[in-house]
């Protein structure tokens, strides 16, 4: 990984409200490298939005610092801060397009703000709209576009000032699965072709798995764990990590004593593991949940099984797994 694009050091944010103070972030330390796609995942209210808004100083942290390209944002003047923000594009769940401007003028908007000439701005906007596949809708108004198209416009707009970083706060949460896939593809392409560092905020593990290199899990204002996506997937250390990895489909899985999560990487997933286990140990197991994923181009399988209540049968099953080099962990 090249040098750090963004560094968060001991970042904290406490909101003062009439009913007392709310700590949204506490002691957040993260380094995000140049050119990577970094995911931040957490449940609702974990502090994700507050965290991205601190990264571009829309929210001023109450402690710690944000270092962007070696500059501490907290030490900049208003003018310098506005210039720094132009190097960080941002897209939102609700798109936030200007409703009274057409597509073209939405994309030229940030260029107008920074004083780029009209003709130059128009050229740049059309180039970007071509890239996101909307060059034939430049005269349309946001109300005439679908959600996916609006997000494409928002992406083109965020890239207009040639930012180094693109911050995405739940950018696909208002979209259907198919559109989500297309938008994620687009973000990946932007990262690859333009070298833009992308920070993806989401509550869906599927989004992280689809495009991120590394991920940080945020839980109750703290970073619970962070690391490469495949590592977090195969060996989550925290309860919240396990929860998020099972995802929406697995949210009905009750964690408990006898539940074990198995992870198979590409090689093992060819073999009939469970059948072998049942045959070898002569004990039935109950499959609670299972699915397959593609992470970093490798396929991973995960399965939650319920082991027999009997102590010796249970340890026999666990021994079988260990002997066959199948990664497992108890989910409780």
């Amino acid at each position: 990984m090249a040098e750090n694009m963004i560094e968060l050091r001991g970042l904290g944010k406490t909101f003062k409200t009439s009913s007392g103070s709310v700590t949204a972030l506490e002691d957040i330390n993260l380094s995000i490298g140049e050119g990577e796609i970094f995911g931040i995942i957490g449940l609702s209210g974990a502090g994700k939005s507050t965290l991205v808004r601190c990264i571009n100083y829309l929210e001023i942290p109450t402690s710690g610092s944000v270092i962007f390209q070696g500059k501490n944002l907290g030490t900049l003047s208003d003018q310098e801060l506005r210039e720094a923000r132009r190097e960080m594009g941002m897209i939102f769940q609700q798109f936030n397009l200007l409703a009274q401007r057409n597509v073209l003028r939405n994309v030229t908007f940030p260029l107008e703000l920074s004083g780029v000439s009209k003709t130059e701005a128009k050229e740049r906007a059309i180039e970007l709209l071509r890239m996101v596949g909307l060059e034939d809708r430049i005269k349309a108004y946001p109300a005439q576009l679908s959600g996916g198209q609006k997000q494409r416009v928002a992406i083109a707009r965020a890239l207009a000032t040639r930012p180094k970083v693109l911050l995405c706060d739940e950018a696909t949460s208002a979209l259907d699965p198919n559109t989500t896939k297309q938008i994620l593809e687009l973000l990946k392409r932007i990262n690859r072709e333009l070298g833009v560092t992308v920070i993806v905020i989401t509550h869906e593990m599927a989004v992280i798995e689809a495009i991120c290199d590394r991920v940080a899990i945020i839980d109750q204002s703290h970073i619970a764990e962070e690391g490469p996506v495949s590592q977090i997937f195969s060996e989550p250390k925290t309860r919240i990590g396990k929860q998020l990895i099972l995802g929406d489909a697995g949210k009905n899985v009750e964690f408990g004593e006898r539940k074990v999560r198995l992870v198979f990487d590409g090689n093992v997933s060819q073999e009939p593991v469970i059948a072998n286990l049942v045959l070898a140990c002569k004990t039935p197991v109950n499959i609670v949940f299972a699915n397959m994923k593609e992470i970093d181009g490798k396929s991973f399988g995960q399965m939650v099984i319920e082991l027999p209540a009997d102590e010796t049968e249970r340890s026999r099953a666990l021994h079988f797994l260990a002997a066959n080099q199948i990664k497992y962990e108890e989910v409780r």
């Binding site: 720094a84 941002m90 609700q94 936030n96 940030p110 707009r157």
Partner: peptide, 30 residues
């Protein structure tokens, strides 16, 4: 005027004055 749109303008480095005459007034025109 939608607070999200104002937030977006801020994220693009808009000054207070720019937010007033390029976002607030035009978006509220109708």
């Amino acid at each position: 005027v939608d607070a999200g749109v104002i937030e977006a303008a801020k994220s693009m480095g808009a000054s207070t004055w720019q937010i007033i005459y390029k976002v607030l007034l035009p978006e509220a025109k109708p």
